[in-house]
Nucleic acid binder design. Structure first.
Lengths: 185, 185
DNA sequence: ACCTGAACACCGTTCAAGT
DNA sequence: ACCTGAACACCGTTCAAGT
């Protein structure tokens, strides 16, 4: 089957470039990683990368999709844990990627493709957080604003570095304040 | 007074470059603004910029200090307003600069000078928010975590675009939840 | 279909040379 | 002290040419 063999080779090569790009983007940062270095580590010429990917942002999006799929698969295994545990898990899980969070924000303002990915990502993240808040008993009217706050706190904990105790304190306080009914002091 | 004349000229030239850089950084973004375009708009050669500033990050920091001083001066005039009004003011005031927020985060991981500026900025912002929370009657033990949450929500509202009604909803909910004493539902 | 060598336009930065 | 012309090493991307 030459047709299948070909297709598999193509997929393998693409995957290899992707794996190299992912490692370099995470370890050294998107900006500090030149197409030349990716090519070098993958054992190809720069132009070859452009055969498999439209441009550097397209490569970034492919890496992001790869990471997102992996994270979602893992998240599915802990959906029964309490809300604060799940948020802490998400922050710990995504902490290695904090550089990419910034990169997405930066590139989204320049690349329409990254902007689209970013929008889609937040729709997904928002629906996950909204579901979690509903399960934790939050008032329906407050869900959209609460979801935004949850997203911002996760992003904030990712992009600014906090130690484990502080992360837990922030998340516990947030969940406690958001999911209990307030009465004026 | 040739000495003073000289000093004034120098200060004027520096200010002119700075003003051009600030406008271009805000309007077009830090990455999209080349040193060449700044020089062109300021009517000098690229090398001249390097006479007044160490490098592009140093220029960025000078712009940030300029913007911060201006914002702080304006903030001083509204310190008597309630907490949610002040937070909303800050978001509206800084919204034009949302691109620079990202830029600071990106450059902080590459330039030690920007990293130092970013750290100093957050110390200042944290102390302002902590004071505001104390005045609003927040429990002392919760202040650090609350301050982090406040910072993250402001940054989130800046970097993701929300319309006025949504911004207000998020801030009002946040302030309400943080500054009232909760009791279990 | 897949890959390359060589070029393109651009970038931030430097340096010897001028005044 | 201040400014320039010209260069440097690098960047993402393209293209004609090969197989």
């Amino acid at each position: 089957m030459p047709r299948n063999r070909r297709l598999q080779d193509r997929e393998e090569k693409r995957e290899e470039i992707l794996a190299v790009a992912q490692r370099l983007f995470i370890d050294d940062g998107y900006e500090s990683t030149s197409m030349g270095r990716i090519a070098e580590h993958a054992g190809v010429t720069v132009n070859t990368i452009y055969w498999y990917f439209r441009d550097k942002d397209d490569l970034l999006i492919a890496v992001l999709d790869r990471l997102l799929a992996e994270a979602l698969a893992q998240y599915a295994t802990i959906t029964d844990r309490p809300l604060n545990e799940r948020l802490l898990w998400a922050v710990d899980r995504l902490e290695r990627l904090h550089g990419l969070v910034n990169t997405v924000h930066t590139r989204a303002s320049v690349s329409p493709a990254v902007h689209t990915w970013h929008t889609g990502f937040h729709e997904l993240a928002d629906s996950l957080i909204a579901d979690a808040l509903r399960n934790a008993g939050a008032a329906e009217a407050d869900i959209p604003a609460m979801t935004a706050i949850g997203t911002f706190v996760i992003e904030g904990l990712l992009t600014h570095r906090y130690d484990d105790a502080d992360k837990r304190a922030v998340i516990d306080l947030l969940v406690h304040k958001l999911t209990t009914v307030p009465t004026q002091a």
